[in-house]
């Protein structure tokens, strides 16, 4: 057993967990944050993507014990109170989800890619979005509306970033 301490969605989280506990297990079983989903065993599907210290990470590939002091954000932690994150709102407005299982990972990956491209001052084209989604599998939507959702959210987020400056 290892004692771990990290911040999850802005709150401090402490637990004793077996050494081989994955971050995805810790979030789902210890924190009961079941919005982070597990869709495969080989780190390909991306349903488990969360943010660790601001970067997208597949939570099924990280040991919880390795994240001492880390700042973890899950799908449950991105809305601002009752206000949806622009990425969440864009998925709803563009019908970017069907069964909803891959959606948390898609949204977390989407936010990460928009942030990275904006930080580098690069345009996030539809082609780039499709390329960036290599690690997120959706079986329902055919990706068409997911790409539209991320494009729309990118516009919204860049508007917000400019307004903040």
């Amino acid at each position: 057993m290892t004692q771990i301490k990290m911040t999850v969605n802005g709150k401090s989280a402490t637990a004793d967990v077996p050494d081989n506990t994955l971050l995805s297990e810790f979030l789902r079983e210890n924190m009961r944050l079941t919005g982070t989903h597990v869709g495969c065993d080989t780190s390909q599907c991306g349903a488990c993507v969360v943010h660790v210290d601001g970067r997208a990470v597949k939570s099924c590939t990280v040991l919880a014990a390795s994240l001492e002091g880390a700042d973890v954000t899950t799908i449950e932690g991105i809305a601002n109170g009752k206000d949806l994150h622009p990425m969440q709102a864009a998925f709803k407005a563009n019908h970017g989800l069907q069964c909803g299982f891959c959606t948390p990972g898609m949204i977390m990956s989407g936010i990460d890619m928009v942030n990275r491209y904006q930080a580098e001052g690069q345009a996030l084209t539809a082609e780039a979005i499709r390329h960036e989604l290599e690690g997120n599998i959706c079986r329902c939507t055919g990706y068409h509306n997911i790409v539209k959702s991320i494009e729309d959210a990118a516009d919204e987020m860049s508007g917000m970033a400019q307004a903040a400056e």
Partner: peptide, 15 residues
């Protein structure tokens, strides 16, 4: 827009 979406995009779906 879908009525069911809010719970899925906020991680509150119950599978």
């Amino acid at each position: 827009e879908r009525k069911e979406d809010k719970r899925f995009i906020t991680g509150k779906g119950k599978y």
